[in-house]
Structure formats: C-alpha cells, structure tokens
Design a protein around this nucleic acid. Structure first.
Lengths: 221, 221
DNA sequence: CCTCGTTTCAAACGATCGTTTTGACGGCAG
DNA sequence: CTGCCGTCAAAACGATCGTTTGAAACGAGG
C-alpha cells in the first residue's frame, strides 16, 4: 500500500499535528458513515498515521469521538444563539414576527448551502441522537435546550400574546421543519423525482417563514 | 450458558417457527440498537436457535434485515393511506381543513402511544434513512412518496385555492412536525426537565393541528 | 424398519475489530 | 556523549464479527 506517512499531510509550512488530523478525519468519516461503521484503521490511514495513534492521543476510539464532538458543540450553540440575538437586535422593539423567523431559518439552513462543516455537524447530530456515544443528555444540555430557550424567549418578545406552552410548541414546530429540510437534503436517495425542488433555497425558506408565522398567529388565542 | 433451545420459545400450543422468531427478534433488536450494533449471535440467542439459522433461512444478516423490513413496508403504507382515505370519506365534501389534519395526525402518532410495533417501525425507519441497508430509494418508493402523494391530494381537496407547490411544502411541514414528535419521544435522554410534556398527548395533537391549519391558510395567497 | 429431505446443532473458518506491546527515531538538557 | 522524553510505527494481542461446514436429529412416506 501507500506509505502511510506520505498521504494527506498538510502543506509543509503547516505541518498539521497528528492529533488534529485525527480529529478532522474522524469528524468527516463519522459524519459520513457513523461511529460503528468507521474503524480506527480507516481513520488513521486517511489521516496518514499509525493505528496506535488513536490510543496514544485519545485513549480509545470512543474518546476520539467525544473529543471530536466536544470541539463543535460550544461553537454550534454560540453561533446559533448569537444569530438569534443579532436578529432580535436588528429587528428592534416593534419588529414583525416574520423578521426574526426569517433570520432564524436562514441562520439554521445556510450552513447546508456550502460543502463545509455545517452539513457534517448536522449529520453527526442526527446520528448521535439515534445512536448515542456521548454521555446521556450532553446534546440536550449543551445545545438543544439553550438554543430552544433562546428561541422561545425571542418569539415571546415579538409575540407578547403567546403563552409559554404555545411558544415552546411553536418553536418545536419551527425546529421540526428545519430539521426535516436538513434530513431530506442529507439523506441519500430520498430526493428523487418530483419534490426535489421542494427543499431548494430560497423557496423553502420563504415557505417555512410564511407557514410558521401563520401557525404561530393561529396559536395565539 | 443457557441452553439455546430453552429460551424465548412461544407458548407450546403455538410452536412458532424458527424463521418467524428470527424475523420478530431481528425487528426488535434492530429497532433498539441498529443494524451494525446487533450481531447475528445476539439475534439467534434471543430467538432461541443456532447461529447458522440466519444463513440457512435468509442467506445472510443483510437479507434477514431486508426481509424483516419488507414485511412492514406494505402494511405501513396501506395503513396510512387508508387512514387518509377514511378521514376524507368521513369528512365529506364540505369538510373543514382541521378535520383531515387531525385524522392524519392521530393516525400517524397513535401507534406511539402503545408499546407495540408502531414505535419500533418508526425507529427502524429513522435508522434506515440515516444508515441505509435496503436498496437505494426503497423507502422513498414504497412508503414516503405514496403517502406524501395521498396527503397532498387530500389537502388539495379540502383546500382548493392551494397550488401544487404550496401543498407539497405544507405537507412537508406537517410531516416534519410528526416526525419530530416521534424522534423526541424515541430519543433516549432527550426528554428531560421541562419540555417533557411538550410532546404528551393529546395536547401535542391539538397544537400540530392548529399550527398546521393556520400555516396552510397562511400559504394560500 | 428404512430412506430421504428438512431442520438444527456444535465447531471452526477467515476476516476484521479495538487495543497493547515493543522499540526505533529525533530533539534537547545535563 | 549520554540519558531522557515525546512521537510514532510495525507487529501482535484477544475478542468478536458473519459465514461455512459436516453431521446429528427429526418427521413423513414407503
């Protein structure tokens, strides 16, 4: 085979350390195929290092997974919460309901327009929800609950008549639609035939904003 | 260990055949832990037979999985489509929008109230979407697309002003909320603290019906 | 009784898994 | 130079994977 040391090294002026290459490679492969489907040998060969490196740097495959995940959790939470806060600040006090809704929706979906880490992160997220390898409730505590609370708070600010329960459920409905879009765009072989353009930007954003705004107003009474 | 033949046999008057026991056991275990996480030895020991039985009856683990899945696909599709048709028939020609929406929602969510096969099937569904082991597009062709078409047709019947694109997207929004409820109720450790009652029946059904009806009406113009 | 096809079994196959061992290599302080 | 430390790779470890094998056990028909 190819000499392991010869492949996938960064450019010589940035001799990326083995540890970081392992984290990056693991993130990509785990997102594409899932935790169990990726062996440490596949990871290390793609990262251009020896099998033992995983245990040397992380003490095992599962710790590599958790370390890889932990890197992204805080960044994801802060990015989303700050996008909510920014949208609320721009909206001002007399903002319409549609404006923050549109800001949330685009902030959530735009990472999936490019080929960068945003899509990967949501795939990792979905897999972790279905097949947990972090400590129980980590995702909920670190990301889901804080973002959900921020969204509820923002919605209640622009929709004073909405009681707490209806606000929480409306946010669930909004998030559900966003997650659904992500799933449909990620799932292989699902977007076939007609309906492929149902999830194309920016029409899907327009629909979600309009649908959710009407839904929230309908939950007011 | 325990003698394999001694465990998990059906009652003596129904000497369930090995083949069917394998299918049932595989369905339960695959739904709980996923395809790769369940070994054929675990399946056969729970089914009370020898390891070789999987290859004898199905020719391999993957074929067992596909056979197990194939049993349920047609039934799931027919149950959902018939529930749609039945709701439309009961609604009559002058039906309100809320009535079929409520019928769809309860039909989709009620299997998750009991501990029976409905929950399992949706877990298998989610796993298959994220980690496919059927031929590409099988889920889409056998279930998702037909049910989606039936829903679009029904919605357009009670909502004549809705154009085709808005109807498809509105159904996506409805299904997204239903799937979200299923995921939240299935995911381990996600429903903690406050927000646990956000997905309890029948309040969640009421919310989805009201939210979606308003959303659809808001997509009309 | 015997035969024959079906079913089930214990045992073993080769492959691959995550992990550990062992030691080589290079830079740096003493 | 010597000794140590961080880095890393080759090899091997035991375990488990899906699958195969060959024969025993079974039940129905002659």
């Amino acid at each position: 085979m190819i000499p392991a040391r010869a492949i996938d090294r960064g450019s010589p002026e940035t001799p990326t350390k083995t540890r970081e290459r392992l984290l990056d490679t693991a993130e990509r492969l785990f997102a594409e195929r899932g935790f169990r489907a990726v062996s440490v040998r596949v990871i290390t060969s793609h990262a251009g290092c020896n099998v033992a490196a995983v245990n040397y740097y992380f003490g095992g495959k599962e710790n590599l997974y958790r370390e890889m995940f932990r890197r992204r959790l805080v960044a994801l939470r802060e990015q989303r919460i700050s996008s909510i806060r920014r949208a609320m600040a721009e909206a001002g006090s007399g903002a319409s309901l549609e404006l923050p809704l549109r800001a949330f929706t685009t902030a959530f979906l735009e990472p999936h327009l490019d080929q960068s880490g945003g899509r990967r992160l949501m795939r990792l997220f979905s897999r972790e929800l279905l097949d947990p390898h972090l400590k129980a409730g980590t995702l909920q505590r670190e990301v889901i609950e804080p973002v959900h609370s921020a969204l509820v708070e923002a919605i209640q600010a622009v929709c004073p008549g909405l009681d707490a329960s209806a606000a929480r459920r409306s946010i669930h409905s909004l998030v559900a639609q966003l997650v659904h879009v992500v799933h449909m765009r990620n799932a292989p072989g699902v977007l076939r035939g007609a309906g492929r353009e149902d999830f194309s930007f920016p029409a899907v954003v327009d629909h979600i904003v309009r649908f959710s705004a009407a839904g929230i107003r309908g939950s007011l009474t």
